[in-house]
Amino acid sequence: MALNEPQGKSGLSRARYLPQERKNHILSALVENGSITVSDISSALGVSEMTVRRDLVELEADGRLLRVHGGAVLPKNDSQPVMDNEPALFEERLKQRAEAKTRIVTAAAAVAARYNTVALDIGTTMLMLAERLAGCSRMKIFTNNVRAAHALGRNPVLPDVYLAGGLMREDEMAIVGPSAIAQFEQLWFDVAFISVSGITGAGLYDSALDEAEMKRVYLRRSGYKVVLCDAAKFQHMSLVHIAHLQDVDMLITDQQPPPALATALDVANVQLVIAPAPE
């Protein structure tokens, strides 16, 4: 296993590391390799093996890793990623995990309220978020989601709504294709809210090629990127890998992710928001 060895400022000596910097290095190596040894970390960071062992004890207490003889591995209580079949129809998905989605949308609306130009992806959670944002008159909302645009337009006090032009996929009512991509590639959004069909330590997934490409546009053209994903999608994969975890800034969900995924989110510097249950 090869670990990158950080250099000092001159390249002649190793830098001194704060405890959190050491721990971040350990977690990064774990996510990349699946396991690490005390001796490798000690050599890479230029610290004693006793210091490394102390860091491992603290990380294990936080549930980020499992110590083994001579090193550490990722926690063993995570399920293996599951490859999903074709998703259910929209109306059926709208009824699934409604309480969790409501919690997520409530937290997401509070984030959206900080910004002026907002990009909304497609999906059931995004429709619910659009309904929450319908009265935000100072906001400009850009979307390829026909249902969301319609929901926003029903409110007498509505934000400015910009709908991408292109081919509409029937069940999802999503605008996709080269013209939609070219149109939104010319814009810059303060924040984008992205839906996914699955998330693992390797990144974000979706089931449709054309819809995934629009999601990548939102990620490329936004200053702040927020993924909305309920816990049922943890450790699930689909046909298309959309992006890596480090390509997003925040994950809003309804439950704590399993340990290995939580570690990967930490390493990718993704802010994790667990939407609270209603009082």
Rank of each mutant, 00 (worst) to 15 (best):
G70F: 10
G70C: 10
G71Q: 00
A72R: 09
V73D: 03
L74W: 01
L74S: 02
K76P: 00
S79D: 10
Q80R: 11
Q80A: 12
Q80I: 11
P81N: 15
P81I: 11
V82G: 08
V82L: 15
M83T: 08
E86C: 04
P87Q: 11
A88T: 02
A88K: 14
F90S: 03
E91M: 11
E92I: 15
R93W: 12
R93F: 12
L94E: 14
L94V: 14
L94W: 12
K95W: 04
R97L: 09
A98T: 11
E99Q: 10
A100K: 04
A100R: 05
A100I: 01
T106H: 10
A108T: 05
A110I: 02
V111S: 09
V111I: 13
R114A: 09
A119L: 15
I122D: 07
I122K: 00
G123Y: 07
M126G: 01
M126Y: 01
M128A: 15
A130N: 08
A130W: 09
E131H: 12
E131D: 15
E131G: 03
E131T: 13
L133Y: 04
L133N: 05
A134G: 12
A134S: 15
C136M: 05
S137M: 05
R138A: 12
R138C: 02
R138T: 14
M139W: 03
M139F: 08
M139S: 04
K140G: 04
K140W: 09
V146P: 05
V146Q: 14
R147E: 06
A148L: 06
A149G: 07
A149N: 03
A149Q: 01
H150V: 14
H150M: 14
A151T: 01
N155L: 01
N155H: 15
V157I: 13
P159Q: 11
D160K: 08
D160M: 13
D160F: 04
V161Y: 09
V161L: 07
L163M: 12
G165R: 10
M173R: 15
M173S: 15
I175F: 08
P178M: 10
P178V: 07
A180H: 11
A182R: 13
Q183S: 13
Q186M: 13
